[in-house]
Nucleic acid binder design. Structure first.
Lengths: 414, 414
DNA sequence: CATCGAATTGAATCCAGCC
DNA sequence: GGGCTGGATTCAATTCGAT
C-alpha cells in the first residue's frame, strides 16, 4: 500500500483510509491507488473479473476520503458496474419529537443533511449524479435510496440527466418507527430507484432467475419486506451509541447486489457512511469503491469491512424474506367484498350484535371501535379476539369472520 | 337539471354530463351548476355538510366535460375538501404524450425531444396542480397516484408549489401484471402522494382512530395491500373490452376517502375517467366534482354513479375523534361528587401521591398545580397526562380518574 | 442459567385551543 | 399572532435487569 501515482489533479481526496483503519496522507498528485489492478489482497475471495482487465488506476476496495463530487471527478470514466447511493434525505425537522412516554427521539439532525432550499438540494443532486454517470460503464446501473422528502427530486433529476428508470423498489420496513402523534400514516417504507445509464443500456445485469429462485419460484416483486438494521449488525461506538444515524441493513444491499451485479464487478458507493455497501460487496465477492467525507465514518467502515469474511457459497446470501403471519386489517374484508358496511355481526350464540361501518370499525350503540374492542365491550371482558368471536349470516348459517380472513390470506399468498 | 347561471367566463367546459348520461350543451357563460346549493337530489344519502353552507356555484355531484385546467379556473377558490388525482402517466417514449393544449407530442428517441417531453409534462403538471391548489380549502389535502414514469416529477412539482407532503403511500397490488421479458422486477405497486395545501395546514382531516381500529388496533402503515380492479367492478363496453385502461379499484378510493374526508365533504377529481372517485364518494356520503375531457368516459362514469346506492348513515357517520372530544375540567369531577377535596390521588403503581384541593388543583408538598403539572413533577418528566396517570382508591381497587371523566362526559351528553 | 418484564430505540418534514 | 397549557400520542425488536 502507498504507491503514489500521477493522476488527475485536485485538492480533495488526498487521504485514504487504509485497510488497517489508519488515516494516511497521500500526495497531492492524485488518488491513492492499490499497487496493482487486482483487488485489495485482503479481499481474498474476490475473483478476477471476466470481460477485461480493470483500469489500472481504479482504487479498488478502498475508501476515498473527501467530498464525493471531487472524488468522482478523479475516477476514470466508464469504470464501474453498479452504483449504490444513499444520499442525504434533506429531512426538514421542525422541532424536537418525543414519544408518548416523553422520551426524546434521536432524530437525524446532522449538518450533512441540511440544505437551504429545494434548489440547493437539486444542484447538489444534479452534481453528484452527473459525476456518477460519467464513471458508469455503458451497461452499468444505479440504485438510489430515499424517502418522500427527497426521492421525488432525485427521480426527476435522474430523468433529466437521461438515466433510464428500470424500477422503483419499495423497502417495506418490518419494524418502522411509529407515528407518535397520530397525525399521519406510519411512514413504513423507503423507496429505491433502479436506473440504467441510458435508454440504450439494454445489456444491464439482472439476475432474473436467481431472484425468482430466491423468492419461492415466483418473480421478485418491486416491494421488499426487510427489517431495519438493529442488534449486532448496527455499528456502535465506545459510548454504546450508534455510529451512523442511518445505517442500512445488509439484507437490503445483498438483494441489490445479487440482483444487479456479478462477482468481480466494481460497486461504487458515493455516500459510503459506515460501509454497508463495502461489507456486503466483500461478502459477495464484488469489489467496492467507497467515497466518504467524514473520517470517523470512513474509519469505522474500514474496520468493519476488514472483519468481513467473504462467503464461500454466494448462493446462500439471499436471506429468505422475513415470514410472519401477515396482519389482515378487518377493512380488507370489506374491500374484498366478504362483508358489507351496514351488515350485522353476531356471536356464535347470537347474544350480541354489532354493525359494520364503512371504515372497518364496528358500532355498538354509541360506541365505535375495532372488532376486538367491541367484542370485549359486548361481553364485559377486558379483551376479545374479534376474529373468532364475530359471525355473519350466510345462507341461514353463521359464518365466522375468521374464515374470510383465511380467504384473504390465501388471495394475497400470505 | 339544466339551469344555467352566470359565472366565470371561459371557453372550456361548456358541456356537462347530466346524471342520465346524456351530453348536454351548456351556455358559454359558465359552469353547469345544480339548481340549488344542496347536493344533487339523486344522491339521497349525502348529508348536509356541517361547518357552513357550500358555495352556491359549486357543481356538486356533476361531471364537467372539458379540459381540466380550464374547468378548474372556473371553480370558486377554496371550495373543496379533498382532491384525488390520477393524472396521465404517459411519459415513456413508446407512448403518446399530450401537451397542455392536448396536441400530441411526436415522441422519438431524439434527446432534444425527450427533454422537451419531460419539460412539457412538467408544465402540464404545474398547470393542473396550481389550478387544484387554488380551489383547495386551507386545510384540504390532495392525493395523486402515479408510477415511476411520472410520480417523481409530480412529487417534485408538488414541493415546488409549496404543497406539504404528508405521506407517500404504496399501493401494493395483489395481482400485478408479471414482467413478461424477465428483465426487471415485477412492477407490483403504484405510489400515491398525500399532501396538504401548505405547511401551515395543520388541521387537515385524518381519521387516525378509525384507521387504527380497522387495522387490528395498530397504526395504519404507508403500504396498502389491495387487489387490482377486476371482475364485475371493471367497466366493460359492449364489445366486452375494458372501457378505461387504468380504472382504479374502489377499495383504494374507499380507504383514501375514509381516512382523509368526512361525510358531506366535497371531493374533486380532475381526471375523472370512468368515475371511481365519484362512485365511492356517493357510496360513502361525500359530494364529488369530476372533471373529464373524454365524453365517452364521462358518459360511462355518469351511468355507473347513477347505479350506486349510498350506504346507510350508521355505517358512514363521522366517528368521534378522541382528540376533539369536549374538554372536561378536573373541577367537574369534584362538582359531580366523583372525587372529594382532601382525597389522595396515586399512580397505578402507587409510587406517587398528591392531594386534591377544593379548587381542582393538586398539592404535592408545597407545590400546587394542575393534575398534569403535578403528575409531570412527580415523575420528573416534562409532561404528563394527569387523566390517565392519577387514580383513587374505591372499594380497595384503584380507579383511574379518566373513568370519571367519561362519566361526566356521558352525563353532559358530550 | 432460564424466564419474565421493563427499558430502549429506529431517516420523522408528528398538536390544538384558548386567551 | 404569540404564548401558554391542557393533554393526546407508539410498534417491533432487541437489550437489560430482576427474580
Amino acid at each position: 500500500m502507498g504507491t503514489s501515482r500521477t493522476g488527475a489533479a485536485g485538492a480533495a481526496s488526498r487521504i485514504v483510509v487504509s485497510r488497517t483503519g489508519r488515516l494516511a496522507s497521500a500526495p497531492r498528485t492524485g488518488l491513492k491507488a492499490p499497487s496493482s489492478a487486482l483487488p485489495n489482497p485482503s479481499l481474498k475471495a474476490v475473483p478476477v473479473r471476466k470481460g477485461g482487465a480493470l483500469p489500472e488506476d481504479l482504487p479498488l476496495n478502498q475508501i476515498l476520503l473527501g467530498d464525493c463530487i471531487a472524488s468522482l471527478a478523479k475516477l476514470p470514466a466508464e469504470s464501474v458496474d453498479v452504483v449504490f447511493a444513499d444520499p442525504p434525505y434533506n429531512l426538514q425537522l421542525e422541532q424536537a419529537l418525543t414519544r408518548p412516554d416523553h422520551s426524546l427521539v434521536d432524530a437525524v439532525d446532522d449538518d450533512w443533511d441540511k440544505f437551504a432550499s429545494f434548489s440547493d438540494y437539486d444542484s447538489f443532486t444534479r452534481a453528484w449524479l452527473s459525476g456518477v454517470r460519467r464513471v458508469m460503464k455503458k451497461n452499468a446501473t444505479l440504485w438510489v435510496i430515499g424517502s418522500y422528502h427527497n426521492i421525488f427530486r432525485v427521480g426527476a433529476t435522474l430523468q433529466d440527466l437521461d438515466f433510464w428508470l428500470l424500477n422503483d423498489i419499495v423497502w417495506r420496513k418490518a419494524n418502522p418507527m411509529p407515528n407518535f402523534r397520530g397525525r399521519r400514516f406510519t411512514n413504513a417504507h423507503e423507496t429505491m430507484i433502479w436506473a440504467s445509464k441510458s435508454a440504450d443500456s439494454k445489456s444491464y445485469t439482472f439476475h432474473y432467475d436467481a431472484m425468482k429462485s430466491a423468492n419461492e419460484d415466483v418473480q421478485m416483486r418491486s416491494d421488499w419486506f426487510i427489517p431495519l438494521c438493529t442488534g449486532d449488525e448496527r455499528l456502535k461506538g465506545e459510548d454504546g451509541r450508534k455510529v451512523h444515524p442511518t445505517q442500512k441493513p445488509e439484507a437490503l444491499l445483498a438483494r441489490v447486489l445479487l440482483s444487479s451485479s456479478n462477482p468481480g464487478d466494481v460497486v461504487l458507493d458515493p455516500f459510503f457512511g459506515t460501509g454497508t455497501t463495502g461489507a456486503v460487496a466483500k461478502k459477495l465477492g464484488r469489489n467496492f469503491i467507497g467515497l466518504e467525507r467524514d473520517p470517523a465514518y470512513a474509519k469505522a467502515a474500514r474496520a468493519r469491512i476488514d472483519g468481513v469474511e467473504p462467503l464461500s457459497d454466494i448462493s446462500i446470501a439471499a436471506a429468505p424474506e422475513k415470514r410472519t403471519e401477515t396482519r389482515v386489517p378487518f377493512l380488507s374484508l370489506l374491500e374484498g367484498g366478504h362483508v358489507k358496511a351496514g351488515e350485522t355481526l353476531t356471536d356464535e350464540r347470537r347474544r350480541f350484535q354489532a354493525t359494520i361501518r364503512a371504515d372497518g370499525t364496528l358500532t355498538l350503540g354509541p360506541v365505535i371501535g375495532s372488532i376486538h374492542k367491541i367484542g370485549a365491550l359486548s361481553q364485559g371482558l377486558p379483551a376479545c379476539n374479534g376474529w373468532t368471536f364475530w359471525h355473519v349470516l350466510r345462507d341461514g348459517k353463521l359464518v365466522c369472520i375468521d374464515d374470510f380472513r383465511a380467504k384473504v390470506r390465501a388471495e394475497i399468498g400470505a
